[in-house]
Amino acid sequence: MMELTDKNFQKEVLEETEIPVFIDLYADWCGPCKMAAPVIEKLAEEYAGKMKFAKLDVDKNPHLAQKYHVMSIPTVIIFQRGEEIKRMTGFPGKEGYQKLIEEILG
């Protein structure tokens, strides 16, 4: 899955106009994040072509975490045409993420 940084965030997220972007905000110190990671990898395969999946290490990219007021992880944010449209904090399990995605893809 694509790793986002200060450098590619603009291009890969904000300038992505074709499909929504699902971002997994995580850090190595966070237990539930490690549980969420393989689930999100799987969703990335299932929704390939319909939604872009990327992850953002908040420890390595504190500016982005601050900019989007992320104070709790795991958090996922979904962007569409450069705008945040959905956000979920905590690990809801695969179905929880699926529900969130389906709300957008319908």
Binding site: G31, M71, S72, T89
Partner: peptide
Amino acid sequence: YLGKGVSYCTTCDAPFF
């Protein structure tokens, strides 16, 4: 304010503070 300062996981979120 969940995720905006309210948290149930110190291990996950203490470093944000």
